[in-house]
Design a protein around this nucleic acid. Structure first.
Lengths: 110, 110
DNA sequence: TCTATTAATCGTAACATTGCGATTAATAAA
DNA sequence: TTTATTAATCGCAATGTTACGATTAATAGA
């Protein structure tokens, strides 16, 4: 079908999946890493930096913005993007809780 | 097109995206959480636990297995699954490096 | 051997994602 | 006002994902 049956999962599980999904494309990973590296607003040069067409980058930026992980503000004809630090921290807590689940090694097992 | 242009990204970026992608569905998040909670091999009852059809669960398990995050061994007519702890730890390091990127608050910015 | 049980695989329908050319909207500069 | 610049949006083709009924394969138990 192509669409997940979100109603059978908890809000937390759906939230983790939503965040993970947005990291599930190397272009978005690359955009985020670049924004961290530059450590400032980036006005436009993401297209040159990443190497995908302008509409494609714009679409990836939109997804990141809609999840709240980046913010962009208009500056003349260009738009400046940077990491939304508060939301990034919140997202990180959710993801860390998932990744840091404890594994008490079970001997009578696989 | 539906397929990412992986050749324009680093191995690390593609790896992060691959791990994130597999977490990008609540059923797989749920399966992993259950395996952690039970903390043992789970023989078959994932279908009852999650609530999706058997072929669907089997497909999700296959993806988790192919990425190496779980392992399953045959036990009679059933198959027992559990977390692949070494690989989980490796994956965690990769993801943590990405999530923990430093944000030096930039004042002359957004 | 026959039958039940369990899980993988096949096939397919419905929907989502990715990428980009073309266009549009908004502002700046001339 | 006209023209350039920048980024969003539209529209679409190609491909991927999700879900599940039906089938198959493998083994256990009668």
């Amino acid at each position: 079908m192509g669409l997940a049956k979100t109603e059978m999962f908890t809000d937390q599980q759906n939230e983790i999946a939503l965040f993970a999904k947005v990291f599930g494309h190397p272009a978005r990973v690359s955009i985020l890493q670049y924004l961290f590296k530059i450590n400032a607003c980036v006005c436009g040069d993401l297209v040159n930096e990443i190497g995908l067409a302008q509409p494609t980058i714009s679409q990836h930026l939109k997804e990141l913005r809609h999840l709240g992980l980046i913010k962009g503000n208009v500056e003349g004809t260009s738009v400046c993007y940077c990491i939304h630090t508060e939301n990034w921290t919140k997202m990180k807590e959710t993801m860390l809780a998932f990744l840091n689940q404890d594994i008490a090694t079970n001997e009578n097992c696989c």
